[in-house]
Each structure stands twice: as structure tokens, then as C-alpha cells.
Nucleic acid binder design. Structure first.
Lengths: 298, 298
DNA sequence: CGGGTTCATAAGATAACCTCATGAATTGAT
DNA sequence: ATCAATTCATGAGGTTATCTTATGAACCCG
């Protein structure tokens, strides 16, 4: 029969303190409890571990052989507990996060900075992938959760929480007038050169569908694949980009401003995606919480 | 709080089998017992270890981190149990034995051979020391027990058990007549050249005291310090040695024979000496047992 | 949709564990 | 030498842990 932790604890402590009474005091139990534990472990092993007169207490050879093993076991158990506590208190851990490219460049840096300053010990595996990949990637378990814009396709495998919702905006060069506008309509843009995402991308599809419902149509001068391309072109004066406001990283493009578009207002969601049937690790939970705060106060 | 062995056992088994029910079957308890153990360890750690729907069971990241540690702990515990069992069953161990020189050469070889063939895994530290050293050596804890001839000085620290008792004998060369004698008296020897241990040795002291009580006196032609010297001299025809019969190793001196001396009979004891307040290890116990049998049947 | 499977949970039984009270042996001080 | 103090052992009794039984809920599969 295997010894219990309690028995090993008693064994080591009695050995170290050379006394049942002292060991009992250390463990905050009565002397008879320890006396019993020692007897139990001796019965388990069918072996005397201490030669004890009423006065003195001497470990036997067998005891001396057992002590190192017992100490190893106890310290491993304590180490395990400590490690688990560290995980709970996010002093250690590793999380895998998937983000769509747009989120990665515009929103993630701030979230990441906050998280890393708060929980510097946690390792982060960052996967910046195409928006369409987000859902399967997380569902397959490659990442604990994902942040980005994607369709809720209704499969119950995923837990989806909307973190922020920003209107599609016109992004143009600050010229003293443009950035003062509180609002623009789609119709206001007909005279301008427009830069939009290529047909087939999620953003573009959403725009086209929304405009079609109001009998309008987007006629971009330029179509691009990457958000940063659009922004760079706009910054160079090539035209006005049509993008969700949150996708403009202000630090990176200080000369640009975003003005919300109305009639119709087309909202883009940024959501947090995770597997419905899996608990987030404490570290991931904290990451999600920081993402929530960073994006909701915006 | 530290996890219990039982909890770790359940954790590892559930992880390995991917099922609470199967783990329960393996441990011969009900499913609910395991369910409870898992919940307990989760509460201890304040951490989900398995994401479980009613159907499936998935280890969390924390669980995967815990498993190796848990397995180490369990296998150490089993290793410890195994080691203790090996000690009990004398499949391993190490014993320190002290013997006086006379015993070492004449009696020990046979005991040792038997013990080693029966318990080949046990390491033996053999100390062949002067008879006077035997008691302090064992009392000081340098050897688990000793075998030899010594005075029982009455201090209760030692446990003394007489293993054999042999009369002092005349040891001479087999010449067709000498070895046929069943018995000789001390008086019979007055005409012969006698070889005895030097004055001051225990054997000699005992002889002198016993003879003095019957008004006799030993007048050796030669006095030596070592038993083998006496035997070698006798074998070379230098005279008759006066020694306990058991001190003649027959294999080593095939030409010699021992004839008990009477009037008076002077008995020498060979005893097993151990510390009264210490338990013998299982290996030592077996060694003592073999010594007992080897010497009593003689 | 119903039988079969798996996990969760509540209640009760059993076993493990601890405390309390007491005794025996030994030490050390008077 | 005697007596108080210390230390360990042990038996009785209560508390806590642990297991079983019984049942329910969720899910899968045919």
C-alpha cells in the first residue's frame, strides 16, 4: 500500500525534529495523531522506522533510506501546488491568441502592452491570420481564443463576445476641414477617389450588401488586399479609404483622420472568440479581460 | 493546500484513460468517488483541470502542466513502497557486521557463504576487530551487530545471545592416535610442548583463572598473539595448541584435530551482540538467523 | 424519439483521522 | 531517593473524509 502525504509529512518531520511531540506542534495536531501516523506508515511498510523508548527516538537504517524519497515526494507535491497557484494568479503560463491582421496592427499593440506590463511572466503565442481562418483555428484548438471580426455562423462550438462595434468610416488626410466633420454620408463621397478592400473580403462584402439595400453602390478607384496598403495610399494622397474607424492606428498614421459614415451606418464588430466547451486558462481570462476594457472604453 | 495521493492518482488515471468511469473501474471504486476526487483537486487548485460535458472530457492546459508532476510524485511514492518492501524481503540493504578475528577466520566464512547465496543483493560491511573492541564498536553504532567471544559486562545497552559454546581443546596433528581420543585432561598435557595465546588475551586469562581454581597452572612452551600462528606452529609439529574447538578451520588445516579438555572443562562462548534499544534491519535479522543455525547445528 | 452512456450531485454509510484522557517509562531536580 | 516534568503509547469517542447508492441531466446513436 502506498503511503499518504500526511504519513510522509509526519515521517519527515519526526525525523528532522527527532521528536513526535515537536512534530505534532509543528503540524498543529496532538502528539497522539503523529504517533498514530508513524505507526500506520510502519505497518504499511512492515518495518520499524524509529526505535523509540519512552524518552528517545532513533531513526532506523530503513528510515534513513526512506527520508530522501519522502522529502522528494513532499517537495514535488508542494511544487505542484505552487505551480498551480502561479497559474491561477497569472504569475506564469502560456497562452495562444489568434488575431485577424487588421486587429493585430491597430488594436492589439495596446492590449498586448497592458497585458505584458501587468503579467510579465506569461508567454504569448500570437497567430496573426486571415479573418476567415480565425474561427476554424480556434475551434481546432490551436489558439485559446481569437480576436477579430468574423461572422457568427451559429455553430454552437464557439463562444462569441462582441468587444466593440465601430462604424465604417471615411479615412482621409487631415487638412483642417476633413477631420472637423462629425459625420459623412456615403453620398458625400461620390466625388472623391475611394480606396476600398478588394471584393470578396469580409469588409467589402458587408459594405456592398449594406449599400445595395439602400440602392447605392460603392465605386472605388482602387481596391487593395491589405489594410495597411489602403492606409498608406490614403496618407500619400491617393484617395479616401473606407474602413472601420478602429482600424486606423493613429500612432502609425498621424496625418490621417477617420469620420464615421452614415446613411446607412454600417457597423463592424470586433469580437472575442473562444471554444464554448473549454474553460479559458486564468492567464487567457485576464488577457480577455484586458482586451474587453481596452476596447470598451475606447 | 497539498493534494492527497488519492487525488493525484485519480487525476492521472482520468487523464490517461480520458474518462472518469474508466478510471473508477481501474481503481475499483464507483464513478462518483472519482468525480468527487477530481472536484476536490480542482477546488484545491482553484482551477479547472478537465472541461467536461456530460459526454466528453478534455484536459485543460493547467492539467497538462500538472500531469508530469503528478506522475513523478506517484511513481516516487510507489518506488519508496517498493524499496521498503525490498528491505523487508531482504532483496536489498546493507549491513555492518563486526567480528572478532578468531570468529572471522574459523566460523564466518561458512555463515557468509550461506547468507550471500540466499540474499545476494545485500551489501555487507565486515569489520574484523579485536575482541575487546567488539562491544564498544557495536554500542557506538558502527556495526549493527557483532559476533565473537566477549565478556558480558552487564551494561544493559547490549543484547547478548549465546550462539554456541565450545570447550577449550587440545589441537594437535592427526597421527592415528591423537584424533581418536574422545577426551583429554589438562594433566594429560604436562608432557607435551604447549602453544597458548599470550598472557593478557581473553582466552588466556580465562584458562589461567579456571586452572588456578583447581590448583593447576598452564606452562606453555610458546605464547603467541594470533590464533593462526598457533595453528600453523602446531601443524609444523611445534606442539599442541590450546584453543576453543571452533577456532580450528578444518578446511585450512586438514592435518589437525581438536580433542576437548576436561578437569576442568573450560567453555568459551560465541555470542551475537547487538544494541538493546535498536531494532535489527530485516537483512541483519536474517544474517543473525543464519548465524544461529550455522553455529547451533554444529 | 428512446435506449444507452457519461458525468454530477445529494444522502447516507463507512472508514480515516484527530482529540481527549490516561498510563508507562525515563529524566532531572530537589 | 523521591517527585515533578517530559515523552511516547494506547483506548475511547467524536469529527471529518471518503466511498457507495440512488438519481438526474445531458448527450450520442440508431
Amino acid at each position: 500500500m502506498n503511503p499518504t502525504m500526511r504519513q510522509l509529512e509526519a515521517l519527515v518531520l519526526v525525523y528532522r525534529l527527532g521528536s513526535i511531540t515537536k512534530a505534532a506542534a509543528e503540524l498543529r495536531v496532538t502528539q497522539s495523531a503523529i504517533s498514530l501516523l508513524i505507526r500506520q506508515i510502519e505497518e504499511n511498510f512492515q518495518l520499524k522506522l524509529f526505535d523509540r523508548t519512552t524518552r528517545a527516538l532513533h531513526p532506523t537504517a530503513a528510515c534513513r533510506e526512506a527520508i530522501p524519497a519522502a522529502e522528494r515526494i513532499l517537495s514535488s507535491a508542494r511544487g505542484l501546488s505552487q505551480h498551480m497557484r502561479d497559474l491561477v494568479e497569472v504569475r506564469t503560463g502560456r497562452i495562444a491568441v489568434a488575431v485577424s491582421a487588421g486587429v493585430a496592427s491597430a488594436l492589439l499593440p495596446r492590449i498586448l502592452a497592458r497585458f505584458r506590463s501587468r503579467y510579465p511572466e506569461v508567454k504569448i503565442d500570437l497567430f496573426d491570420i486571415a479573418p476567415d481562418e480565425l474561427l476554424p483555428f480556434v475551434t481546432a484548438g490551436h489558439a485559446e481564443f481569437g480576436i477579430g471580426s468574423f461572422e457568427d455562423d451559429g455553430t454552437s462550438e464557439a463562444r462569441i463576445e462582441t468587444l466593440m462595434q465601430t462604424p465604417l468610416s471615411a479615412i482621409g488626410v487631415k487638412d483642417g476641414r476633413f477631420e472637423k466633420r462629425r459625420r459623412l454620408t456615403w453620398a458625400d463621397l461620390t466625388a472623391s477617389d475611394l480606396i476600398a478592400m478588394r471584393r470578396g473580403t469580409r469588409i467589402r462584402t458587408q459594405i456592398d450588401e449594406a449599400l445595395a439595400q439602400t440602392g447605392q453602390e460603392l465605386k472605388p478607384a482602387l481596391e487593395v488586399s491589405l489594410i495597411t496598403t489602403a492606409l498608406a495610399l490614403t496618407a500619400e494622397g491617393a484617395g479616401i479609404s473606407i474602413l472601420p474607424a478602429h482600424m486606423l492606428p493613429k500612432a502609425q498614421f498621424p496625418t490621417l483622420a477617420a469620420v464615421p459614415l452614415s446613411q446607412p451606418i454600417v457597423n463592424r464588430h470586433v469580437s472575442l472568440l473562444s471554444r464554448a466547451d473549454f474553460t479559458l486558462s486564468p492567464a487567457a481570462e485576464q488577457f480577455a479581460e484586458i482586451a474587453r476594457r481596452a476596447l470598451s472604453t475606447k
